[in-house]
Design a binder for these strands. Structure first.
Lengths: 131, 131
DNA sequence: TTCTATAGTTACCAAAAGGTGCGTAATTGC
DNA sequence: GCAATTACGCACCTTTTGGTAACTATAGAA
């Protein structure tokens, strides 16, 4: 019997360009300002809610909680609730999360290195076309 | 006269965690599903509008144009209009864009490598707590 | 007794991202 | 003359993201 070429092969090579591939969902999860910054921040060590808020500078409580929950759900972040009163909750990177943070730090450094070029290009662009 | 410590120093070290720092804006620009995929795709060589749509799989014409314009505005992508009819427009990476694509490809490979772990963690998480 | 501290949750609202469909220009092939 | 082609722009609508403010629990300090 002939191979059915109309269907995807049983095992296919993961491809972020394939909208149906699960790796695409993984990419979408981290393609977010807050997710990137949180993971980068946690690379410096475990942190509590208030410390993360201070580190990120302008995140709202809501977005922080929301993003942390998604990262925990996907196994990138570990949440440890010490179950005390007042509450004491610590967030840290899982091993998978740590494997990601290395790359994200490279991205951070890219931004810190090249933002000047972007600023200049933007100014030139806006000056030429009608502001 | 004493140094005014209430204001940022004249030249400060760029920091993506500082909401006021321009490098933070640079990070936000690329912290987007479409921006990431477009830059990764263009790493394979210059492409026309239709080719990019095919490569990204499920991007709408509107989002593709919109994102390309922002990337061009910030100097990451070069747009070459051959001014023919029917139109022929080619998009390619600028040198700065190419310096970014290297890191983004590492991110793509991370997603393609670890998506299984994320899937498993998500399933576990959803199984434990109320679905 | 009342106030403070911590890490949330919820409801409500505003803004941004994103999708769909329609219109457009002018040359080439039929 | 007519249709197809290509890379959009624009208007309208829905969905997602994000912000604000009010509320929760309870030990310990004042």
């Amino acid at each position: 019997m002939a191979t059915d070429l109309t269907e995807a092969p049983f095992t296919s090579i993961p491809d972020v360009f394939d909208p149906a591939c699960s790796s695409r969902h993984a990419l979408e999860l981290i393609a977010s300002k807050w997710a990137m910054l949180i993971i980068s921040a946690l690379e410096e060590g475990p942190m509590r809610n208030a410390a993360l808020m201070r580190r990120l500078g302008d995140v709202s409580q809501k977005m922080l909680t929301q993003t942390l929950k998604e990262l925990e759900r996907n196994g990138l972040v570990i949440r440890e609730d010490k179950k005390t009163v007042p509450p004491h909750v610590e967030y840290s990177l899982s091993p998978v999360g740590r494997s990601l943070s290395e790359t994200l730090l490279v991205l951070d450094r890219w931004a810190e290195t090249h933002f000047g070029a972007l600023d200049a290009a933007r100014e030139r662009y806006d000056a030429e076309r009608g502001k």
